[in-house]
Structure formats: C-alpha cells, structure tokens
Amino acid sequence: MTSVPTLGPLRVAKVMARLGIAESKRTAGLGSRQRSELWNYLLNREGGVAPGRLVVMAGPTAVGKGSVSACIRENYAEIYLSVSATTRPPRPGEIDGVHYYFVRDDEFDRMIETRELLEWAVVHNSFRYGTPRPPIDAALEAGKNVLLEIDLQGARTVKGELPSAILVFLLPPSWEELVRRLTGRGTEDPADQARRLETARVELAAQDEFDYRVVNTEVAAAAREVVELTALPSHRP
C-alpha cells in the first residue's frame, strides 16, 4: 500500500482500519472478502483503471530468453517489455535502449544510490545487470501488463518487492540442447562457456521456486504461452 503514489503511512493505516485488515497481514494471507474490498478500493482510487500485471521471466543462460522477449516485442504491442541496464558491452546487433541500456560502472553506481533500480545483481561473476523501476511503475499504473526478462537472483528480489508478480521459468527442451545453443552462438570463449554452464545447472535446480514453467522448444509458441500468463487472475488458488 505504501508503494502507491500519495499513500503515506498515516493514510495507509486509516484505509487498512476501514477495510478491516490488520497491519501485519500480507497480501497472500488476505481472505476473499478482504481481497475484494482492497481491490475495489484501489480500482475506485485509480478511476476504474485496473493496474497491469507483472510477469517475470527467468531461466538459465542460452535458454533463449532474449529470443522469446524479442518475439513478444515484435508481435504483442500490448505488453510493455522492461529494458534492463547492464555494464557489459553490447553484443553484435544489440541496440542501446532497445535490448539493454548499456551504461558505465559509475552510472550504474548512481542508479543504485538513487534507488532507481528495482533489483540488480552481478551475473556470471562479471557484469552487473539491473531493472530500472520508474518505467515499470508508470506502465503498471496505466493498466499495461509488464514483462521482465531477468536472472534468477533478480526474479527472487522482484517477488519479494512485488508479491503479486507472476514468476515464469523458461526451460530448454533438454540439457543437450542448452549446451548446443550456448556453444553455437559463439559469443563466449571456452572458459566462459564452462562457467555459464555450471551456473545453468544451479539455476535449473531452482525452477520449483517459480509459479509456472515454459519449455522453449519453439520461440513463437513459448512467447505466446508467456503472454497468456498475463491474463491469469491476480491470485492463484
């Protein structure tokens, strides 16, 4: 509640008391009546515009997260794709502001200090990645569904910050196919490939933490399945 613009601690306390919700309650612990009344309050406050849904997609290296995101960007204009910031250099064909915001280390430090990042992490013991929060908040408040494509550590952080987010784990058809995709793209040397594959084993072991799993056998089909998850009810039974 306190993350909603113009709702400070005092106003939140009054609203919670009026709705009969204890301050210690978490969203997942609300009863059906409480959930309904809270939802109606937020709808009325926003002039009847329901907030958008947030879907967080993560998965192991080389599983095809970028390809699935690109497919969604090209074919599903109703979905707002968050653009991450990173300190790594662009790969061939990547465009600043479209695929990532490519920033220097000092700029990334500034974004951390000013709390502009919803989450950030060091990935593969090398470069930092982070999710700028202001564009996400604006899109959700305008009723747009938002997709984040981030790493496992970032997905955990977002779920802690925004419990209503849907976590989707993108899987390869098999381990052998994952290895083939990684070695076939030719963007890492053998040592980096080995390090990324070791990280992938750890990431695959965490898939049960996610709400849904999507197997990326074919990019268009996987993209469609991810988009369909934005239409799910806010709270799973």
Results as ranks from 00 to 15, higher is better:
1 M>S: 10
2 T>W: 12
6 T>F: 09
7 L>H: 07
7 L>P: 01
10 L>N: 10
10 L>K: 15
12 V>S: 08
14 K>C: 04
15 V>Y: 04
20 G>S: 13
21 I>V: 14
21 I>K: 07
23 E>F: 05
25 K>E: 13
26 R>P: 01
26 R>C: 04
27 T>M: 11
27 T>A: 13
29 G>N: 13
31 G>M: 05
31 G>C: 08
35 R>I: 01
37 E>Q: 15
38 L>S: 07
39 W>K: 09
42 L>Q: 11
42 L>M: 11
43 L>C: 05
49 V>E: 09
50 A>W: 07
51 P>G: 06
54 L>P: 02
54 L>G: 02
55 V>S: 01
57 M>L: 15
57 M>D: 02
59 G>T: 04
60 P>E: 06
62 A>P: 02
65 K>M: 09
65 K>L: 08
65 K>V: 02
66 G>I: 01
67 S>C: 04
67 S>K: 11
69 S>C: 12
70 A>P: 00
70 A>M: 07
70 A>L: 08
70 A>D: 13
71 C>Q: 13
71 C>L: 03
71 C>A: 15
72 I>W: 05
73 R>E: 12
75 N>S: 14
76 Y>S: 10
78 E>H: 15
89 P>N: 05
89 P>Q: 13
90 P>K: 11
90 P>V: 09
91 R>Q: 12
92 P>F: 06
94 E>V: 07
95 I>A: 13
95 I>V: 15
97 G>Q: 12
97 G>V: 08
97 G>T: 08
99 H>Y: 06
100 Y>M: 09
101 Y>L: 14
103 V>T: 09
104 R>V: 01
104 R>H: 11
107 E>H: 13
108 F>Q: 01
110 R>P: 01
111 M>Q: 10
112 I>N: 04
112 I>A: 09
114 T>N: 14
115 R>A: 10
116 E>Q: 15
116 E>A: 13
117 L>C: 05
118 L>R: 02
119 E>M: 13
121 A>G: 03
122 V>W: 05
126 S>D: 12
126 S>W: 09
127 F>G: 00
127 F>K: 04
128 R>L: 07
129 Y>G: 00
130 G>I: 03
131 T>Y: 01
132 P>H: 08
132 P>L: 04
134 P>Y: 06
134 P>A: 11
134 P>K: 12
136 I>D: 00
137 D>F: 07
139 A>N: 06
142 A>M: 10
144 K>S: 13
145 N>S: 14
146 V>L: 11
152 L>I: 10
153 Q>E: 14
155 A>S: 12
160 G>M: 09
165 A>S: 14
166 I>N: 00
168 V>A: 05
169 F>E: 01
169 F>V: 00
172 P>V: 02
174 S>H: 09
175 W>R: 15
176 E>D: 15
176 E>M: 08
178 L>T: 02
178 L>P: 02
178 L>K: 03
183 T>D: 00
184 G>E: 06
185 R>D: 14
191 A>W: 00
192 D>F: 00
194 A>H: 01
196 R>A: 01
198 E>S: 13
199 T>R: 06
202 V>F: 07
203 E>N: 10
204 L>A: 03
208 D>N: 14
215 V>K: 08
217 T>L: 08
219 V>H: 06
222 A>C: 10
224 R>C: 02
224 R>T: 07
225 E>N: 08
225 E>D: 12
228 E>L: 10
229 L>F: 06
230 T>N: 04
231 A>Y: 09
233 P>T: 07
235 H>C: 03
237 P>H: 13
237 P>K: 09
